[in-house]
Write a protein that binds this DNA or RNA. Structure first.
Lengths: 226, 226
DNA sequence: TAACTGTGTTATGTCGACAATGTAGGGGCT
DNA sequence: AGCCCCTACATTGTCGACATAACACAGTTA
């Protein structure tokens, strides 16, 4: 019913999750250098563990590394965020289409349960849960596509980047109310096994998000966007 | 004019390229276990280097790894290849659309030059170059999209997997003649800045490939497809 | 004064050894 | 005989130390 919790078996995995959290949530700022020695002492592990963790961060495209120079958190730009949403539009559009084809009845039911439960929460004014709820919704649809390559690219590689952009460019929790209706319509299209409509609505949903972001970027509220 | 040659600065990078080549071209078969000690002695480097190389192979989804157990080359299935082509269709379709929008005149010219030069080669019966030529064509269009996320996913993460599938499932050098015409039409659409047409033709082009592969899979020529 | 070179420092890249975990095989118990 | 547990081995995970490359700064020279 809920998102599978990633459980770390090795010390490198734990460090990776910690680092990823610190980066995505902005405690390690965009563009910052990741010194292996410093991180090793901070997390109380050896440099080998840190290097392993940094390797995995590179897989997610959260950090970049130059040989013999070091690793830095990726530099964000508003253009980069727009590009990211373009790719999301194509990929999640396909995910919605495939979800309409491949989700079983149980999964469809759970998706709709999630939405109604979510709707109740928001009516009580807990827009706090919106971020997690939004992630959960999209997550389920991607999983529902049953396409492993799609799942890999989006879940492992892209969602963390999106969250990082949103946190660091200061656009947390936008578009709560309208996004709900869009989610509901998408879920309905999937329940009706209407592949075309599901894809179209999902693409439009993400396009709206992109436009919303564009507008926010035009009126920079606190800091430059590189 | 040609593909940028990846030059290895560190020992780990060299080992990574070697390993990737061995895996993609089938010398290390699908499903094989990658023993760190064995590879370390074979490539005459330390285990740390091997671990670094394996990390990068995991980034490309060419190998999988379980904690405290080890790394194995990914297991291929015909279903997985089909899924891969579904994702390619969405991504490269978008790449073609963006290429039509963002490629400059020089890049468009070079793309068309490549095709005519390529066409001449094939008329001389050198269908040998088809594989490389095909890769080159798609590569340029992806680069022409100027979308860094798209470039990352496709170039670093997906094309090697596609090559691996094609080699190991025994479908090298297919559809030479018809693919040419399709390439030409796509290049023409891009030259005319017809985004819609470019995307449609590219999607169709990849769909044809997928169908072609499906047919080959129905008549398994030499070995089971898992 | 400006540019270049040499050196010293600091970081990353690489290595071999030790620790911890998973696995297979043999022995004992029911 | 079949199942379980325990031991021994093999493999991966982690560590600290050394090798090597990049950077900064001072000294020299035109």
């Amino acid at each position: 019913m809920s998102l599978p919790v990633e459980v770390a078996k090795t010390s490198a995995e734990k460090t990776f999750y910690s680092l990823r959290k610190d980066i995505v949530e902005g405690r390690i700022p965009s563009g910052a250098k990741l010194s292996e020695a410093e991180l090793a002492s901070r997390y109380a592990v050896s440099r080998a563990v840190i290097r392993e963790a940094i390797s995995r961060l590179m897989s997610c495209h959260l950090v970049e590394r130059k040989a013999n120079v070091g690793a830095k958190v990726v530099t964000l730009s508003s253009a980069g965020l727009i590009e990211l949403y373009q790719v999301r539009e194509a990929l999640e559009g396909m995910a919605a289409r495939l979800a309409a084809r491949h989700m079983n009845e149980t999964e469809v039911d759970e998706l709709q349960q999630l939405l109604s439960q979510h709707s109740a929460q928001v009516k009580h004014g807990q827009s706090y849960y919106q971020e997690a709820g939004d992630v959960d919704f999209h997550y389920r649809i991607v999983q529902g596509s049953k396409n492993q390559h799609l799942i890999n690219v989006l879940i492992d590689g892209m969602y963390h980047l999106v969250r990082m952009y949103r946190v660091q460019l200061g656009m947390a929790g936008p578009r709560v109310t309208t996004a709900f209706d869009e989610h509901n319509q998408i879920a309905l299209a999937i329940a009706n096994r209407d592949e075309e409509l599901a894809e179209m609505l999902m693409r439009r949903h993400i396009l709206y998000s992109r436009n919303n972001i564009k507008n926010k970027l035009l009126t920079p509220s606190h800091f430059p966007t590189n």
